[in-house]
Simulated assay, not measured.
Amino acid sequence: MFGSLLSKLTQPNPVPLADDDARLAITALLVRLARSDHAYGATEIDEINRILSKRYDLTRDAAAALLHEAEEIEAVAPDTVRFTNAVKDGVPLDDRMAVIEAAWSVVLADGVRTAEEDALMRMIPRFLGITDRESNEARLRAAKAMNGASI
């Protein structure tokens, strides 16, 4: 799967992603966002694992395995523009909205929003066909869910 997704990401003309490739690409995109501030720590890793478990109904071990593979993909994947275009072409709009909400959850997980994360969160929604307003609404939902979880 690793080589398959990388070859699709590097093709000049994107091809629709199969479900497994889309799942891996989305996870790698979350990893890229979490790593953007050079502070990829346990809080963000735990949040990504929580998202994967919930979104894909995975066990803890299966989520950790998917995350590990996504970390490897993210480290060698092409620029974020091609990455997000592949997700856009392979994932329906409703699912892309959920991806943006998940992305905001990762950004907010450690309680610190950095300039690097903010820059990616201005770019990623746009490349996924999500408006700034929709992204802001997703951010508010993610923040509300995080505040509700701590009560």
Rank of each mutant, 00 (worst) to 15 (best):
K8W: 02
P125F: 03
W104A: 06
K144W: 01
L6M: 15
L9P: 04
A115Y: 01
L66I: 08
L58W: 02
T80C: 10
A75L: 13
H38Y: 06
E137M: 12
E137P: 01
V81Q: 08
A62K: 01
R23H: 05
L29I: 11
G90V: 07
T59L: 04
T80N: 13
M1R: 07
D79Q: 13
I124E: 04
F83P: 01
R82Q: 15
D79K: 06
T59D: 09
T27L: 01
A119L: 06
R82Y: 06
N49T: 14
V112T: 10
L66K: 03
V107S: 05
T80R: 05
L128A: 09
E72R: 11
D37E: 07
A63V: 04
F127K: 09
N136V: 15
G111S: 04
D89V: 14
S105A: 10
M146D: 15
D37T: 04
S36N: 04
D21E: 15
L52I: 07
L128H: 03
G111L: 03
V15C: 09
D20Y: 00
R122F: 04
T43M: 10
S4P: 01
L9S: 08
A63N: 02
R32N: 05
S135W: 01
K54F: 07
G111E: 05
L30K: 02
A62L: 02
D118V: 11
V76W: 04
M1A: 13
V112D: 09
V91A: 07
R50W: 03
V81L: 09
H68P: 00
E47Y: 02
R82E: 13
G3K: 07
A109N: 00
G148A: 15
V91T: 14
D20P: 02
S135Y: 03
D132E: 13
D95G: 08
L58A: 09
T27Y: 02
Y40L: 07
D37K: 00
A115L: 09
R35C: 07
I51S: 03
A25D: 08
G41L: 12
L9Q: 10
N49Q: 15
A65I: 05
T131H: 00
D19L: 10
A86Y: 02
P125A: 11
R126N: 07
I45N: 00
D94G: 10
A42S: 13
A42Y: 03
N85L: 14
R55W: 04
S4H: 06
S135G: 13
A39E: 12
G129H: 00
A63Y: 01
V76A: 12
D57M: 10
G129C: 06
T114M: 02
D20K: 05
Y56H: 07
G111R: 00
R126G: 06
E72Q: 15
P78A: 12
F127M: 15
K54A: 13
